[in-house]
């Protein structure tokens, strides 16, 4: 097993240890861009999801950097009067249930600010999966050329929407840990590709 894993690593092959991981990796690699480094941003509407994601990031070797003061201020300014003032704008970012009105724009704006200082982003939200949401996420990813994965809340009721987003190049996962693990594998593959250039 050690020899097999070493050989696969030397060739840049990603290993799935069970069928669930195989599906997750296939979803992750539908993304049109790879993370250039291991700095991960987490944008959540649920503090628990953010904690689960951060713990997994540590486990799989991803870094969750605290945002610079300038970026924290940018986020605070964007969210002023939109969400309660006790949210921490450091990373992970907890949006504390933003209003339904303009929700896609709020998520996209915050994501864009966060992506100025990280290589990839995982969003955990309660958004309504309409065409605006899909387009907003696609446009964001195409604009910043950094991968954005989703791990929406209430995934059991949203299998069809998750599949739709994944097919549009925005990989979506049922729980934060699976999104983080898949992102960590994408980072490893990206590092391999950079190392052979």
């Amino acid at each position: 097993n050690t020899i097999f894993e070493a050989a696969m690593k030397q060739c840049g092959v990603s290993i799935a240890y069970n069928i669930e991981e195989l599906i997750d990796l296939m979803a992750a690699f539908t993304c049109p861009c790879l993370p250039k480094g291991n700095k991960l941003g987490i944008l959540a509407e649920s503090g628990g999801g953010a904690v689960a994601g951060a713990d997994s990031a540590f486990e799989f070797g991803l870094d969750i950097p605290v945002l610079s003061k300038a970026r924290q201020q940018e986020l605070t300014d964007r969210l002023k009067g939109v969400i309660p003032p006790f949210s921490a704008p450091k990373n992970p970012i907890d949006l504390v249930w933003p209003p339904m009105e303009n929700r896609v724009k709020i998520l996209v704006d915050c994501a864009e600010i966060l992506l100025k200082e990280v290589d990839s982003l995982i969003i955990m939200d309660y958004a309504v999966f309409n065409s605006d949401y899909v387009k907003g996420m696609q446009d964001l990813q195409n604009r910043v050329r950094k991968p954005v994965f989703l791990a929406p809340c209430f995934p059991a009721k949203r299998q069809a929407e998750l599949a739709k987003l994944t097919l549009k190049g925005v990989p979506s996962f049922t729980i934060p840990e699976r999104a983080v693990k898949a992102m960590a594998t994408a980072v490893k593959y990206s590092q391999y590709v950079q190392s052979i250039k």
Partner: peptide, 26 residues
């Protein structure tokens, strides 16, 4: 066996330059 492994690794190296390759270790 060694020939098979060697051919496989060469193929994998060529492939991963272009696209991600996943091995399901089932």
């Amino acid at each position: 066996g060694l020939k098979y492994a060697s051919d496989f690794l060469e193929l994998a190296k060529r492939a991963t330059r272009k696209k991600p390759v996943i091995v399901w270790k089932g």
